[in-house]
């Protein structure tokens, strides 16, 4: 790891100022991805701004939404009785990220800001049609994700909270990469008042995306069989030593059916 200046501001404005002042400054949330990246010397920040003292933790549940502070850990979301009641799929998803120790540190804000193409949370946000609130604005899920490792966040812009509408039903089905246990294919299916939304993570070269064909079919008939004749094309899907694009395309169908079944 290269050395850097470490700051731990106590309010959002100070953090934003630090991050905005220096193009090479980086925010440190839970660090479960960022610190391994630093260790591999793949990133050389001048300043690391620790967000842990900004007061960005906590979960607020209303009849229509679940709002989670950016620095809330995966473990907290997974164990939250309120989240389990309002959007059980979200708690389930959080419990599938990493392992116990990783979930004790990793945060929802960090995960979304990083937009790793094999991360789990982006699928939930996109499928549920949630919003990301930052220090300066609110961004819809559709606008937020802009290709792998790329988001709508500006330099120095900080996620403060993430809000998810409470769906009628939702479920997340994850096929883990056997080695890393990240999502090789993760499918979040949400049945909302306006129809069904299906978001796929782990599979596409472009990062998380919505499977519109599945959405249309499932909006008409919310049952696993509704998509049995739809073939997902393998164009644009990732291919690696664990899964070819064709295999991923197949798994997208399998995992979607499983998610629908679990709803």
């Amino acid at each position: 790891m290269y050395d850097f200046k470490y700051e731990k501001p106590t309010d959002v404005a100070a953090a934003v100022a630090s991050l905005g002042a220096d193009m090479e400054a980086k925010a440190l949330a839970g660090g479960q991805t960022f610190i391994p990246v630093l260790k591999q010397r793949l990133n050389k920040p001048t300043v690391v701004v620790d967000l842990s003292k900004l007061g960005l933790t906590g979960i607020t549940v209303t009849p229509t939404s679940v709002t989670i502070g950016a620095m809330t850990t995966h473990g907290t979301v997974a164990e939250s009785e309120e989240v389990k009641k309002a959007i059980p799929a979200l708690a389930h998803l959080a419990g599938l990220i990493g392992d116990n120790a990783v979930r004790h540190r990793g945060t929802i804000g960090g995960s979304l800001a990083n937009n790793d193409p094999s991360a789990c949370y982006p699928a939930a946000l996109l499928a549920l049609g949630g919003t990301v609130t930052t220090d300066r604005r609110t961004i819809t899920a559709g606008d937020f994700f802009q290709g792998m490792f790329t988001t709508a966040l500006e330099q120095g812009e900080l996620i403060t909270s993430v809000s998810f509408p409470v769906p009628e039903k939702a479920a997340y089905a994850k096929f883990r990469n056997p080695a890393s246990r990240y999502a090789m294919v993760g499918v979040f299916v949400a049945k909302l008042a306006g129809g069904v939304r299906v978001a796929i993570t782990g599979a596409s070269q472009g990062g998380v995306y919505r499977h519109t064909q599945f959405e249309q079919a499932l909006s008409k008939n919310f049952a696993p069989d509704a998509i049995k004749d739809i073939t997902t094309p393998s164009d644009g899907l990732n291919s690696d030593i664990h899964a070819s694009a064709e295999y991923r395309a197949h798994l997208i169908g399998v995992m979607t059916k499983r998610a629908v079944l679990a709803c």
Partner: peptide, 9 residues
């Protein structure tokens, strides 16, 4: 709580 001390400054 458990943490991985190699992934924490």
């Amino acid at each position: 709580v458990s943490v991985k001390s190699c992934a924490m400054l």
